[in-house]
């Protein structure tokens, strides 16, 4: 393959618990190209969030490396913008001030931070809600605000942990469609955890299937459908075929329930 933005090299991570040592990451390795959108799916509890925490520098891996743009970034948080599973918008800040939080922490002057965030309110469908409080927003809008807070930090790689997991299925479909459209205007390199195979195929250039815990990359599937994809792509026979491949890969190593 060509250029590499993010290289995850042989990550291992175990947790020490009361019941003993719990191995979670067992040699996870993969590359992500610049501008690529890669989804990570895997059985529940296999270690997806742990993988993200290790990449984002929140949790030190036992061994292995995280390399961004050729530089060793293991244990560092600065190349990554992280969007956690919950939106975590703070009620004491307006929507605008929530979205500038990462910039403020990084020492960007308030004025400049607000200008940068405000410029994204239109594309993110939040125009007019700058001075609203998060609790006044709908679920989909909250999620878009959380995503805005993530991308405005302008980091090398976006890490999205189930960004739409908490939404009802209708809002979720809207959000997927919106993200697919909006991302063509930016050059984000994205790693996204999801439970939803259809969402993975719809949005991604590649999908990684993780094995059950202790996990490693079980399957690496390229989604060669042209962008931007409308919801119509779902009826494409290749779409169904990919869904099938992923579902089988997910089930392949799962014990029969």
């Amino acid at each position: 393959m060509g250029e590499v933005k993010l290289a995850v090299e042989d990550l291992h991570k175990s947790f020490r618990t009361d019941a003993g040592v719990l191995p979670v990451l067992d040699g996870v390795r993969f590359d992500v190209a610049p501008g690529e959108f890669v989804s990570v799916i895997g059985p529940s509890g296999c270690g997806k969030s742990t993988l993200f925490n290790a990449i984002a520098g929140l949790e030190r891996p036992d061994s292995g490396r995280v390399v961004v743009d050729g530089r060793d970034s293991t244990g560092r948080s600065d190349p990554f913008a992280y969007m956690p599973q919950q939106d975590l918008l703070f009620p004491w800040r307006t929507v605008l001030d929530n979205t500038t939080l990462g910039l403020e922490v990084a020492g960007v002057p308030r004025r400049a931070a607000r200008d940068r965030a405000r410029a994204l309110f239109g594309p993110f469908g939040l125009a007019g809600f700058e001075s609203a409080r998060p609790q006044e927003l709908s679920g989909g809008m909250r999620q878009r605000a959380a995503l805005l807070r993530t991308v405005v930090q302008d980091r090398a790689v976006l890490l999205l942990d189930e960004p739409f997991g908490a939404l009802d299925s209708l809002t979720r479909t809207d959000m997927q469609e919106w993200l697919e459209t909006v991302r063509t205007g930016f050059e984000w390199t994205v790693l996204m955890i999801t439970h939803d195979i259809r969402e993975a195929v719809l949005l991604s250039d590649r999908v990684l299937v993780l094995a059950p815990r202790p996990t490693r990359v079980h399957l690496d599937v390229v989604v060669d459908l042209p962008h931007p994809r409308g919801l119509g792509v779902i009826t494409d026979p290749r779409f169904a075929q990919l869904e099938d491949v992923l579902l089988n890969a997910l089930r392949g190593r799962r014990p029969e329930a």
Binding site: N53, A56, G57, L58, S77, D78, F80, A81, Y82, P84, Q85, Q86, L88, F90, L101, G102, E104, V105, A106, Q153
Partner: peptide, 22 residues
């Protein structure tokens, strides 16, 4: 919330900043 702390840490926030902002 532990998750809020993690979010701030991912932004590179110092202990003092985590205190002040969250």
């Amino acid at each position: 919330d532990r998750k809020a702390t993690d979010l701030l840490r991912s932004m590179g926030a110092s202990r003092w900043q985590r205190f002040r902002y969250v």
